[in-house]
Amino acid sequence: MKIHNISTENSILNSFIAEMRDINIQKDSMRFRRNIERIGEILGYELSKSLNYTRSKINTPLGTCHMHVIANDIVLCSILRAGVPLHNSLLNYFDKAENAFISAYRHHKNNPESFEIIVEYLACPSLEGKTLILADPMLATGQSMIATYEALKPFGNPEEVHLVSIIGAPEGIKLVEEHFHYDTHLWIGTVDEKLNDKSYIVPGIGDAGDLAFGEKLQQ
């Protein structure tokens, strides 16, 4: 897997991630969602550099010119619910993309420190021969990414796969590296130190879904 860690170079992206982490700023859920969107747009721009382009003739009011435009047939899939702002931000850049949505969440049984990933809802167009962009803000254990990709397999074989996350942990990155094809690209805002005993990223940000949309009742 090809990993693109955008935080290795100084850019405005780091300021947006810093605001997402700040316990005072992240109390403003609207600002938290907007920071996800701003980071997603940066990641989308970086991702766009790796896509295929074709030369196209453009008519202007004063003549014609030739421009190189994206040739990929893109399907953008986000993992609900924290993935919604990230999905919107990528759709701002890949506005001709088809869209897929999937619910994947941690289901805790008797032990609160152990869980399984449950997939309950899925809507997806054909993926055959297309470019799949799979977006999830937090790449913690990597199990949600893998469970989502496995659930998408009946919809066809994409020609290429891009994973997009804002913050990841080394453990989760290692797991997806083992599962996804070596040509898969991971576009990530930053990589943190580790997972804690509850599989949350440290130092991380907390629960992205709760911060974006409010606390939920546990099942």
Rank of each mutant, 00 (worst) to 15 (best):
A123R: 14
V176K: 00
Y121E: 11
G83T: 07
Y53D: 06
V191A: 02
L186K: 13
H107Q: 12
E178A: 14
F16Y: 15
P170T: 00
F213K: 10
V176L: 01
I167T: 06
I188P: 03
S50P: 00
A82T: 10
Q143V: 01
E159R: 14
I118F: 04
C65K: 13
L47N: 11
I133F: 05
P112Q: 12
K109E: 13
I173S: 01
N10V: 13
C65T: 13
Y105P: 13
E171T: 01
I79R: 10
K216A: 08
F155E: 05
V202K: 04
N24M: 03
S199T: 02
N92R: 13
V69G: 04
G40M: 01
L152C: 08
Y182Q: 14
E128Q: 15
H4A: 11
L152F: 04
I102A: 04
P170H: 00
T148P: 03
R33G: 07
Y45W: 10
A104P: 08
L13H: 09
T190W: 02
K174F: 00
R38E: 09
I58A: 04
D207C: 08
L163P: 02
T190N: 09
Q26E: 03
L134T: 08
L186F: 12
S114Y: 12
G172E: 13
I166G: 05
Q219L: 09
A147I: 06
I12Q: 13
L132V: 08
M145T: 02
T190D: 13
P125G: 03
E41W: 02
E46T: 10
F32K: 12
E178P: 03
I58D: 05
E160Y: 01
G204Y: 11
G172T: 00
G44C: 06
I146Y: 05
I23W: 04
A208F: 12
I3M: 13
L217C: 06
L211K: 14
L86A: 03
M145F: 15
D207T: 06
E128N: 13
P203H: 09
R34C: 02
V202Q: 12
S29K: 15
F32Y: 12
N88F: 02
K109Y: 11
I17H: 04
A97C: 07
T148Q: 02
Y182E: 15
C77T: 15
G189C: 06
G206R: 03
H185C: 08
S56E: 09
K198W: 07
E41C: 07
P125Q: 03
P112E: 10
L195I: 01
R106F: 10
E215Q: 10
T54F: 02
S56K: 10
S50H: 15
P154N: 04
I133Y: 09
K49N: 12
Y149L: 12
G209F: 09
A140E: 08
F213V: 06
D22N: 15
S144E: 09
Y200L: 01
I23E: 13
K27V: 04
F115G: 09
K174H: 10
